[in-house]
Design a protein around this nucleic acid. Sequence first.
DNA 1: TGTCATT
Length: 391
Amino acid sequence: MAVRLCDVASLLRSGSWAAEPWTGQVIAAMETQLSNGPACNSTTNGPAAMSNNCSSPVESGSIEDSKTNLIVNYLPQNMTQEELKSLFGSIGEIESCKLVRDKITGQSLGYGFVNYVDPKDAEKAINTLNGLRLQTKTIKVSYARPSSASIRDANLYVSGLPKTMTQKELEQLFSQYGRIITSRILVDQVTGVSRGVGFIRFDRRVEAEEAIKGLNGQKPPGATEPITVKFANNPSQKTSQALLSQLYQSPSRRYPGPLAQQAQRFRYDRWWWLPTALVSFSRFSPVTIDGVTSLAGINLPGHAGTGWCIFVYNLAPDADESILWQMFGPFGAVTNVKVIRDFTTNKCKGFGFVTMTNYDEAAMAIASLNGYRLGDRVLQVSFKTNKTHKA
DNA sequence: TGTCATT
């Protein structure tokens, strides 16, 4: 069984964290988080959108590609495997789940795999969780390619790029040598100007080798200086080296290993992977909206056989299902979400429904999300009643 | 020289 998300929620509501210094930053982040809706469609946002990416097993050319196995990239450093499983388990039943760690240090390498039982859930996970912001990261969710030696060591480091070159132009330059999985141009943290340095990850190592042969020392179209193209360092090697060095030089200050890290965990170590908006909100959670007190438990809970149906009111006209997944998923198993739309305009009529499997998780979601400010609207969240159903 | 992309 996955970590119960209500544990997270209860931590949030315990009040023990409210005075922590990160609270203000989280509040600032919250406005953009959920008011923008899901950060995750295939057409917008997130690293996935920038590349001719591996989102389709069909495109990769093998009919044997798994339609259930996902790779999740850009996970926050301190996210555990159980938390990964818990987050993705809110979409559907998981066959297996693995967070990849450095063999020596035990540190997360920032990515993992989630294998669903049902391919539909894998697809749903991509549609709803790709681009989700967790702490300072924007996670990327895509189909995992079949593991093989040919896809390893296919990442290139590129320097000497014209400062005006965009990521798209970089990809155009390299795409003649193969399928690009990811690309990035590093920018100055302050000015946002390109540092003339970037990365290109190809699908296969042979493609990367060909790109080095073809582009290293060459001038891109319109450029005055040649670029350098070589294989990138493996960041996990660096981590291990730094650790070993530290171990050798100062045993008393060495970095904690996996067991020590576990011991260091304490009561609110799981808040962070909730969407930041949810974290910030609970300390402000109002229970009065438009003069009407609305507390979880006042309404008779609507149990509908398949789960507990929750009524969500005051959604924006452009609200969609993914916002409901993002808000409720962290609290536990969500089996269904629905935004009610006007038949002719297709705009949200201001409300929707969420079905959750477990009562305690549903109750926690309601207690936490009722009164949540989404953009310029304050949501009302309660168990669905018969009266509501009539509307 | 990365938001650590193949268990």
